[in-house]
């Protein structure tokens, strides 16, 4: 579904991603693990089209999208739930969702909305509330929901567990797993929380300082000595 080929990305002179290549297959959960500053967020931003790529290719559903703009990629079926539950703070919960559905028609919007409220009933209770007043966990739920409203085929998630209580982290990861199992949605998950990320992933890749360290199934990664030392202490 998504193929990234030898991606190189810079911030000014800083070389943030170095020859990163990987493929996410349809229907799988692919996790990218790495410490703070490893380049995980930059990778997702590059795939979404919010960060220019210096070199390399991004292929989505067989189409080269490396030079497409973010809104064009969104229409093709790529979606991103931003880091730290980043949502539109000055809009209401429902306006955030309406915005996510900017490109879909009214009937499908209502249907999609019911689907989201079933996934996260708490958002329905808060639908008229200004999004900036939500709790951290609710914000994260809204961030994921907004990204889901675009009817994506590939949902990318930037640290959905960041700063949340363990109970809410478990709840959110259960929803993600269920989404993948029930609807076949392809997930590209970026995490510092290695345990949770590997628990639901089919395959994963470890990156460090912009380089790929290793990749494989969660079991393979969990038996890799380097990874255990670096991330699981």
């Amino acid at each position: 579904m998504l193929r990234v080929e030898k991606l190189n990305v810079y911030y000014d002179r800083l070389h943030v991603l170095k020859d990163i290549s990987f493929e996410v297959k349809e229907g799988e959960i692919f996790s990218i693990i790495g410490a703070n500053g490893a380049g995980k967020t930059t990778l997702l931003r590059s795939i979404m089209g919010l960060k220019d790529v210096a070199d390399g290719k991004i292929i989505f559903k067989g189409k080269d999208i490396t030079r497409l703009k973010a809104h064009e990629r969104a229409s093709l079926g790529i979606s991103l739930s931003f880091e730290g539950g980043r949502i539109l703070r000055t809009l209401t919960v429902e306006e955030n969702l309406r915005l996510g559905a900017y490109r879909i028609d009214k009937d499908r919007f209502e249907e999609r909305l019911r689907f989201i409220y079933k996934l996260f009933p708490r958002l329905e209770e808060r639908k008229k509330q200004i999004a900036g007043s939500l709790s951290g966990g609710e914000r994260q739920m809204l961030s994921i929901s907004r990204a889901l409203m675009t009817e994506p085929e590939l949902l990318m998630l930037d640290e959905p567990s960041f700063g949340l209580a363990p109970k809410i982290v478990i709840e959110i990861f259960q929803v993600l797993k269920k989404l993948n199992e029930d609807t076949g949605l392809t997930l590209l998950l970026v995490e510092q929380n290695v345990k949770q990320a590997l628990k639901i992933a089919h395959r994963a890749m470890v990156i460090e300082a912009g380089y790929e360290v290793t990749r494989g199934t969660p079991d393979e990664i969990l038996t890799n000595k380097e990874v255990i030392e670096a991330y699981l202490g």
Partner: peptide
Amino acid sequence: LAMRAVSDDKEVAEASGIDS
């Protein structure tokens, strides 16, 4: 709605399919 979204957070708006 798109105007308010772009003025709130341009990138989130773009990722939602809005041509900012």
